[in-house]
Write a protein that binds this DNA or RNA. Structure first.
Lengths: 139, 139
DNA sequence: TTAAACTGTATCAAAAGAGGTTACAAAAAG
DNA sequence: CTTTTTGTAACCTCTTTTGATACAGTTTAA
């Protein structure tokens, strides 16, 4: 499968928007920098907009800008805004229910998934977009 | 498709092996319980064997058993033994290198990936196979 | 009020990963 | 030897993600 790169691209896009300040940045421009198709960017921005991280304006002189300051955008928000899958998937087929192990396995794994997801979000909550920009600029 | 379910299946398989004790369990039997093809199981066991979590024996009367006691098998070991992908992928195409942001983005994201992976492993390190079995049996 | 410049989306094609299946070599037991 | 079983290679199919085209709707500005 093509692995999900939406989070990576989102961070990149948001950094570009932050650089743009209050100006509306066009999807065409962003696509050029990220090296992909403008529609891919617009799809992504659509998710970020639903999460109130960015604001887009249609029409001529339209484009997208951040909905709040970089210091107030946590990476955990970005992660949650995107349709990223779980870290691991459950069984592709339901286990054999005659097997007493299979019967209770799904519940356990599901709980474990939630715990892991929480770990990830806690880690991402430690960073804001401003932190990202600082690190990138000092590199 | 389901994203990578190998971890989920691995936990299930190891639980079955634990139940089997010192007996060698055949891939055919495991496949029946997990509801998949024996080859899928053997592929998985091959990874677990490399990590010294299980031991397989070829030939008639062959099969697989745990290489150590359930209390000594940490879920973090299992996770590391499998070719599970990263939580998020980097850009599918290299970003435009004329863009100063793109230039340093990959390095940052790569570091972030490693941090997240560490979080996951720390979480999974808290559980052993014995813990899993106890939880499943008390359910 | 018309033309131009955008976003938002639907739709389709292409690429890649994962699971499932078949086939068969190699090894061990009897 | 024959049977049983693992280890793997090869291939197919299904699904997901990305990339691309097309076009409707909205806004600006001449």
């Amino acid at each position: 499968m093509a692995a999900n790169s939406q989070f990576a691209v989102a961070i990149h896009v948001l950094t570009i928007l932050a650089k743009g300040g209050d100006e509306r940045v066009k999807s065409d421009y962003i696509a050029g920098s990220v090296n992909t198709n403008p529609v891919v960017i617009r799809r992504l921005l659509s998710n970020l907009q639903e999460a109130h991280i960015v604001v887009s304006q249609v029409g001529a002189a339209g484009g997208t800008s951040l909905a709040k300051q970089p210091k107030d955008i946590r990476l955990s928000e970005v992660y949650k805004a995107l349709p990223c899958g779980e870290v691991f998937a459950l069984h592709p087929k339901e286990p054999n229910q005659d097997c007493p192990i299979g019967k209770n396995m799904a519940a356990f794994l599901c709980g474990l998934q939630k715990e892991i997801d929480k770990s990830i979000e806690e880690k991402l909550n430690q960073y804001t977009l401003r932190d990202v920009i600082e690190r990138i600029e000092s590199a």
